[in-house]
């Protein structure tokens, strides 16, 4: 599904990501963990086209997508959330999701402005789809509230739903559990499993809540200073001395 081949990302003299080789199969939930500033978000940014990697190739479903624009990559089926929540702040909760629906609407500026019947039908369908998604995370009743008036934890859920509205095949989640308490994190884990099955997704996620990572990911990559220092299943990673030293600490 996703494959990065020797991806490097440098900022001036700083190598944020070095020789990243990640491979994810369809239907997997894979984790990307590591200390602060290890290069996890940067790795996401090279996959989603926010940055063009300094070196290396990114392949999605076998096709080279290195250096494509972010919107083209989204169109091909990769969606993401942002670590520093980036909702459209002057828009309602529902509108935030509807923006993401536009991609698959297939209506241009003329059809939209003229409110052609074809467009109206698709718009109604998009609304129903968006409302259903909001319902699935318990945000339906807040649909008309301004997005930024939501408490932090709900803004995170809205980000996930908005990404889902682009109908992705691969979903990249950047710290979905940040701002949630342990109980809410448990619910989030169930939610992640559920959307994977329901929407037939492959998921790559960055997370610092070990309970969540170990609970949902079948395997994970560990980065430190941009370098992949470990790779394997939850148990293996938790025992890895390098990972404990750089990231987990001893309990």
């Amino acid at each position: 599904m996703l494959r990065t081949e020797g991806v490097y990302m440098r900022f001036g003299g700083l190598t944020a990501v070095a020789d990243l080789n990640v491979e994810i199969d369809k239907g997997e939930i894979v984790g990307l963990i590591g200390p602060n500033g290890a290069g996890k978000t940067t790795a996401f940014n090279t996959v989603t086209g926010v940055y063009r990697p300094s070196e290396g190739t990114v392949r999605f479903k076998g096709r080279d997508i290195t250096g494509k624009k972010p919107h083209e990559i989204t169109k091909r089926g990769i969606a993401r959330t942002f670590q520093n929540i980036r909702l459209f702040k002057d828009m309602s909760v529902l509108e935030n999701v509807l923006v993401a629906c536009h991609l698959r609407l297939g209506a241009g500026v003329a059809a939209c402005t003229l409110h052609l019947p074809g467009y109206l039908k698709k718009e109604r369908e998009a609304r129903a789809f968006a409302e259903g998604l909001l319902d699935s995370v318990g945000l339906r009743s807040l649909a008309d509230e301004p997005a930024t008036s939501l408490p932090y934890g709900k803004q995170r859920r809205l980000e996930i739903v908005r990404a889902l509205a682009t109908k992705p095949e691969l979903l990249l989640l950047d710290e979905p559990a940040a701002g949630m308490n342990p109980q809410e994190s448990l619910e989030l884990m169930e939610f992640i499993h559920r959307i994977r099955d329901e929407y037939d997704l492959t998921i790559l996620l960055i997370e610092h809540h070990m309970q969540v990572v170990m609970g949902v990911c079948s395997r994970m990559y560990v980065l430190d200073y941009g370098v992949t220092i470990a790779h394997g299943g939850p148990e293996q990673i938790q025992k890895d001395p390098k990972v404990i030293e750089a990231y987990l600490g001893v309990d």
Binding site: G34, P35, N36, Q83, Y152, E175, A178, G179, H208, M210, Y247, L248, G249
Partner: peptide
């Protein structure tokens, strides 16, 4: 307000 948000386990401690 949530000082540990987004910090790695070591740093959270």
């Amino acid at each position: 307000d949530e000082p540990s948000l987004g910090l790695a386990p070591l740093i959270v401690k």
